Computed example of a mutant assay.
Amino acid sequence: MSFTGVRVLKGGVLTLVEDAGRWGVSHLGLTQGGVMDRHAWAWGNRLLDNPWGTAALEITLGGLQLEFLQSTWCALTGADMQAQVDGLPQGNWQSFYVQAGSRLELGFARTGMRAYLAVAGGWQTPVGLGGSRSSVQREMLGGQDGLGSALQAGDLLPLQGIAAHTLHRRAVPDDWLPDYSLPLTLGVIEGYQAEQLGAAFRKAFYQTDWRLTAASSRMASLFEPDDELPELLRQATSPLVSEALVAGSIQLLPSGLPVVVMAERQTLGGYPKIGAVCPMDLDQLAQQVPGSCICFKPVDPMDAGRREKAFLQFFRSG
């Protein structure tokens, strides 16, 4: 019996199967994982009437090439990678129909870092621990092979059969389109340790312009000062008793440099934390290229909570 689905011709720089993450496993020391940019991922699925949690391909930097052995509807969101189907350009942040036998080719990101390719019904890769399809390479979980591997040439990705007439071309409204080229300020929900760090330390931290380093990954975003690190931030910080880390936690290394933990964060950490980046701002951070200038500012936790609640209600309501 011949395979129907998608064949990978080129895996690109880094392409992973990702969904909303692997919940309920932190007590085992396993990361939550999942998509880095929920905003782009959620819109891709919404354009195709896929429910919240549906797996998509997270394409970092670009270079992915696929051959469709089965017709289906697709949606591409996030970083602009100049997608083409059989040589014909396809717009970003919209859905499009791909005929069996066609090839989808992505270039390399002109803006942003990560694009998301969703298909109608979702990628039908194995469901693993925590009821998730998400790939975590270091833990060898999820993905198309169940071992967290990035896509490689020759891989086969199963699809869910869907009739062409069940969907139509859609695009994300302009008001929802992010501009990844704009300077980014990350909102910080301060935690209980912020007061212990002192007002002077917090002021110095927020007044410093930071740059994202090339060492950043799906595990954490690392920063260095745009100029000289203020002397106050150089003060050695004493390790604390390890405690649970939420996505966006801002850990302060003994060097004074901040680290923002991301989707594949470790479950525990003992470095002092000034607080956590607002969940929706993490989506923007996931699209920043190394060298981007980034600032932090404290925000009202209630305002951040309302934004997050509105986001989840919108995308989970279907």
Rank of each mutant, 00 (worst) to 15 (best):
A247M: 15
W23D: 11
L257K: 07
L57A: 01
G12P: 03
T54C: 13
Q288L: 08
F96K: 13
T166L: 09
R218G: 08
T208A: 06
A56W: 07
G5C: 02
L48F: 04
L240N: 01
G34M: 07
T60A: 13
P272V: 02
N50K: 03
W123L: 08
S71I: 10
M36D: 01
S255E: 07
F68Q: 02
L233N: 01
A199M: 13
L156W: 12
G44S: 05
T267I: 15
V289A: 14
S134D: 10
G291R: 03
M81A: 02
G128F: 09
V17C: 05
T31P: 15
W93M: 11
L69Y: 00
R46P: 05
L159Q: 01
R22K: 08
Q32I: 15
Q137F: 06
V172W: 02
E139A: 15
K273F: 07
R103M: 09
L157F: 06
L197M: 11
S102I: 06
L268A: 12
W41Y: 09
P230R: 11
G29S: 14
D19R: 04
T54I: 11
T4S: 03
I274V: 14
L229N: 02
S71F: 07
A120R: 00
I59A: 04
T213A: 02
L14I: 04
L167I: 12
A214Q: 12
Q94Y: 09
F223S: 01
I294P: 04
Q235A: 09
L147V: 10
L245T: 15
Q144P: 02
Q235D: 04
L16P: 01
A244D: 14
R7W: 00
G130S: 14
G148P: 06
C293N: 07
G87W: 08
Q144V: 12
Y206I: 03
G53D: 13
L312K: 14
V260G: 06
A150K: 06
L186G: 01
A310I: 14
T166I: 12
R114H: 12
A115E: 03
Y180H: 10
P225S: 07
P279K: 08
L76W: 13
Q124E: 12
M219C: 03
D155L: 03
L141A: 06
P279H: 12
F315A: 00
A118D: 00
Q70I: 01
V172M: 08
P183G: 00
A79L: 12
T125V: 13
S317M: 14
S249N: 11
G44A: 06
A215V: 05
P225F: 07
R133V: 09
N50M: 12
Q144T: 09
D281Q: 06
T54R: 05
H168W: 09
G275L: 03
S217N: 06
Q144N: 13
T237I: 08
P298Y: 13
H165V: 05
R46F: 11
A42H: 03
S242T: 15
I189R: 05
S255A: 08
A79D: 03
R316Y: 10
M140F: 11
W93L: 11
E231R: 04
Q207R: 11
Y192E: 12
L285R: 01
H165Q: 11
D86K: 13
S95N: 07
K297I: 00
Y271I: 11
G24K: 07
L16D: 03
G24Q: 13
F296S: 05
A153H: 02
W52E: 08
D175K: 08
V17E: 01
R202F: 08
V98Y: 04
E67S: 13
Y116N: 05
